[in-house]
Design a protein around this nucleic acid. Sequence first.
DNA 1: ATATATTTTTAAGTATGCTTAAATTTACAC
DNA 2: GTGTAAATTTAAGCATACTTAAAAATATAT
Lengths: 220, 220
Amino acid sequence: MPTISKENYLKAVYSQSLEQQTEATTSVLSEKLEVSNAAISDMAKKLSNAGLIDYTKYKGVELTGEGKKIALKIIRRHRLWELFLIKVLGLSWSEVHDEAEKLEHSTSDFLIDKIDDFLENPKFDPHGDPIPNKNGTLPKLPELLSMKDAEIGKRYYVRRVNDKNNDLMNYLTQIGLELLKEIEIVDKLSFDGSLIIKVDSVNHLLSEFVASHIFLEKEK
Amino acid sequence: MPTISKENYLKAVYSQSLEQQTEATTSVLSEKLEVSNAAISDMAKKLSNAGLIDYTKYKGVELTGEGKKIALKIIRRHRLWELFLIKVLGLSWSEVHDEAEKLEHSTSDFLIDKIDDFLENPKFDPHGDPIPNKNGTLPKLPELLSMKDAEIGKRYYVRRVNDKNNDLMNYLTQIGLELLKEIEIVDKLSFDGSLIIKVDSVNHLLSEFVASHIFLEKEK
DNA sequence: ATATATTTTTAAGTATGCTTAAATTTACAC
DNA sequence: GTGTAAATTTAAGCATACTTAAAAATATAT
């Protein structure tokens, strides 16, 4: 059984290489996990010996099949807990991440399956991220478009908000921007890429950076 | 913040000296926590330095005010999780202990208060053990009587089942003996102290050992 | 009271997961 | 292609939480 540190390492590699499709280098992981580069190299050796990652010195790491399986298991726990905490205990968007980050390491397969069943086997978490099923299979993602590339005048559904920043999540909640909400792109400011969007008939301004973390689905 | 090991140590001392009213000696704690005597002595020094226990070499340990506060906090988490898992996720009596044992170390004050509110501030867990409130205060226990001292022919309510053995809990569930259930003491066998009790109009035999872990309240 | 048995502590050693500092490798600018 | 900067790894060290084995203190039996 991997320790908490190992689980977090595998999750970080997954998120970096499989989700963000960028190289899981020592310095990237070091920043993500908030430990020194030396600690990353150290752990890389251990996980490589355990057969959970492929590691070539100076070349970054990749998950093996086994490592990917564990990473997906932790991600499954995290995302199910997030949804559970919001749906059952009424936590807010900004409150669930940190709690799930702790619970994900103390949850047996048995218990997470109970939670999964209780929630009726959901496919997406409160950020719109896909929840791996019991076998580690991810549901197919709908075709999404980053808000920063959306067309002026068009209407969309919010399908994914890819950010761990609590202040941002609170702000979005505050203006009523939530998952599955219908919004309209009112205007795009040419000088800095900011967007004006309409949520519940009220206009709001979002920076390009914020917009780049919100993903939309075209209305059919 | 105490580590998981420290939290477990404080919890074990609490259970031994405050609940079971027996001395928290090195060997008792060593057995309870399943580590060597040396590890217990080692940890005693650390917790003593941290002001969480009073420790006199060769004389066992006692919780300080601060140590007791932390122990009660962990016990609160454990008992609330047990109740939550049974009530919300439908786990059985025998399944909740091990899960709660893990979750209790990964639950923030914020989250446990949400769970407490969701359950409407319960006073007793599924074993009938008292749940410390937010301030660490325990509810007053009703006057209870060990089943092994109950009177033949009298009827009682089951108010507490003080055992962590899963097989026993499963057996009790199976014969319908659950918390708040009304039972009747049918007979007591003189040669080994076994009891015959009536649950749901069916007679069952319980050993004296089992009976000594079940606590009853007299019918008014 | 003294010998012996039991309990507890100390000492030495190990694995994990970090740290900082030094050494090494790789990247890139010119 | 060579020098320098950046990234990475190695080395040494530390705290935690264990282990086993030896030493010390306490308890018990006669």
